[in-house]
Every structure is written in structure tokens, then in C-alpha cells.
Amino acid sequence: MGTDAHQLSGTFDPGVISQRDIISIRNKETVMKKLALYVLVALAAAACASNEKKETPAAVTDLSSGAQQPQSGMSSSTTQQQKPMGSVSGNPLTDPNSPLSKRSVYFDFDSNAVKDEYRGLVQAHSRYMTTDKRDSRIRIEGNCDERGSREYNLALGQRRAEAVKQVMTVLGVGTGRIETTSYGEEKPVASGHDESAWSQNRRADIKYSGE
């Protein structure tokens, strides 16, 4: 894991889909979904996750990556109870229609760069922490696939968490409100021994204090 790519990803422009993104997207429908994601993120952040949108941001797929990436909402939405459409009460952190219910940022092999497709998710949590819940605290838990040495993977997972933290602090979340830890390769969500499993295990999960 992560032997060569150890630079923290430094630049992040929350409002703009980069030229590189558009080039990498070869499918118009995906472009539309990606646009929908950013619109949704903006709306959700502004309106505290009202539930007008039927489409979740989970379906964005980065076709530029050779590996099949898991959907970004997979870890949190499956066990949530679906709330009636139009409900405005309830916790946006657990409402499957809220972008804040999406907690997992996935990474390429040997990389701790936060990919563009997950920046909307990170932005939504940053907005929530800086505008809606200014007393909230989070732990970002990094994870790796099973390849490599356990203890080194533990440190690599923490660096992935640190990469997500850096994006959030750029967006105004105080560093003292974010703890970065790691499970290394110890807590895979997919137990297989191939890329489809590994791609789900290379991730950082956002967990709020008190959850």
C-alpha cells in the first residue's frame, strides 16, 4: 500500500468541476449525475438537507480509474431505515436522503489522494460542521486493503484520514475538532482477496462524536 503516493492532496476548489474531471468522464449520464451531486451538495448544505431530491449522490463513478470503485454511499445507507419523502425533521447524519449520511471516501491503490468524486461528500460534512453543528467533533478512520505489512498499513490508513482532514480544515473546520485514526487492514468491509474487495477496503470513514 501507498509506497509511492504519499503526498497529501493539497488543492481543492469546492465549487468547480475541474477540466480533468470532465475529460475523464466519458459518459453523459455520469456527467449529469456528477453535476447533480454538486447541485445537491450545494442545496443540502444551504437547506440543511431537505429531501426534495430523489436522486442520491451515491451513483457517481469515476470511469477514469481502471479499478471498479464502490459506490460512495454503500457503507451507510443499507442499514438505514428509509424515511418518508418530504420529512424535514430527523437527523441529516442518518437520513439516507441526506448527503451527510454518506461517510466513506474511497482511495486508489497506493494513494491517499482524495478523489474529486468524493469532494462533494467531504464538503457537505465540512459545511455541516461549520454552519449547522459548530460543536460537533468527528473521527476520521482510515483503512487499507490487506496487502502489505499490518503496522505500516495502520500508518497508511491514518495518512488517508489525514488527507480527508486536510480538505476539511481548508474548508474551515478547526483541526482540534477532527481526530484521525486508522484500522489499517484490520477491519475490511469486504472480505475477498481481489480488487473488487480491496477497492471497498481502501477508504476513510467519517464518524461523529456520540454516534
Partner: peptide, 9 residues
């Protein structure tokens, strides 16, 4: 020990 209390491990 390996600690990440000051940033990276």
C-alpha cells in the same frame, strides 16, 4: 511506539 498525535505517524 508509533504515535500519530502530532500529525503523521
Amino acid at each position: 511506539v508509533a504515535l500519530s498525535k502530532d500529525g503523521l505517524t
